[in-house]
Computed example of a mutant assay.
Amino acid sequence: MEKFEDRYRQAQMQKYECLLFDLDDTLYPLSSGIAKECRKNIEDYMVEKLGIDKSKIDDLCNLLYKNYGTTMAGLRAIGYDFDYDKYHSFVHGRLPYENIKPDPVLRSILLSLPYRKIIFTNADKIHAAKSLSRLGLEDCFEGIICFETLNPIHKNTVSDDEDDVEFVGSSSSTNTSTTTSSSSYEIFDIVGHFANSNPISALPKTPVVCKPQEQAIERALKMANVNPQRTMFFDDSVRNIQAGKRVGLHTVLVGTSQRVKGADYALESIHNIREALPELWEVELKSEVVYSGQVAVETSVTA
């Protein structure tokens, strides 16, 4: 009898316990145009609210995104201070959400997956809620880990989990209600920094916690109370996927069928999950078969 119980428990132990999903350009396609409009709104914010010369926007945005994960995190790192909620309202508030269409096929796939399912996005909670509502997926996830989850307060210093490096131009630890002119702060010239073939200073760190920082992923896993070795992470960003792999996650790159270093799987579309990852459903069949066998044994012994 003990032998059958051991086999039953072993079969019941799922390889995965949680599926962690990015949102933008992962649960809906890049072709929606949301990312393009979001980039435009960020550029407009930098010009209209932070007073940055329009001619410098392209180079600045590219460097901030490349080195800090998000343009917002980069802006805070180099010395700009602003209200987070107002930033998100400006950047996301004017997005064409009508471009995100209901996805009953994806909804059916998600509901059939026998695991905990959690959204993990760098976006703010309002954007996440609107996007999921447009997709018709708002009830498919246990919870959402978003910007506010990882950044509960407005910081002017690097996270306590990192080296204690003072944030450039810090003046207050509270979230200001009005946008502060960039002239009030010492702005780090990141464009000049990379133009110098032998820069003498290090890049300032950001107080914003976001992907692809390993710290952000580890914090999300801790909040969700999941084991990275039993968690599968879906994201459209190669950097995020590679960071996830470094902290022990099983990784799925979404948006291309070309698997890159750090990605265990690559999906052209999130809709390809069932074909590419049939193992996610096999646990149900395996459990049913072993369970029915155990019942038969117990019944015969009882008789």
Score class of each variant (00 low, 15 high):
I34Y: 03
N41F: 05
D22E: 03
K56L: 00
Y45H: 08
T26D: 13
K54A: 15
K36R: 15
L30Q: 15
T26C: 13
F21I: 09
A35F: 09
I34D: 02
N41K: 07
D22N: 06
M46S: 02
D22G: 10
A35R: 08
K56M: 05
K56C: 00
L27N: 04
D44N: 10
S31P: 06
L27T: 02
D25W: 04
L30R: 14
E37H: 08
D25H: 09
K56R: 15
V47E: 05
E48Y: 02
L50Q: 04
E48T: 03
C38R: 15
D24R: 11
P29V: 09
D25K: 12
K56P: 00
G33M: 03
D25R: 07
D44A: 14
K40Q: 13
S32F: 07
E37R: 08
E43P: 06
I34E: 02
D22I: 03
N41V: 04
D24T: 12
R39C: 07
L23E: 02
E48M: 06
P29M: 14
L27F: 06
T26W: 11
E48R: 11
L23G: 11
A35N: 14
L50G: 01
S55V: 04
K40S: 05
Y28D: 02
D25Y: 13
S55F: 01
S32A: 12
C38E: 12
I52W: 01
S32R: 06
S31N: 12
D44L: 14
C38S: 08
S55Y: 00
K54V: 09
I52R: 00
Y28N: 05
I34R: 12
K40M: 14
M46V: 08
A35H: 13
K49N: 12
D22Y: 07
L23I: 07
Y28W: 02
D53R: 00
C38P: 02
K36E: 12
T26M: 07
E48L: 09
K54W: 02
S31M: 09
M46Y: 06
F21T: 06
C38V: 12
R39Y: 14
Y28V: 03
S32K: 04
P29S: 05
I34V: 13
E48Q: 12
N41H: 11
D24G: 11
E37P: 02
Y45K: 12
C38H: 10
E48D: 10
V47L: 05
A35D: 10
S55P: 05
P29N: 13
Y28E: 05
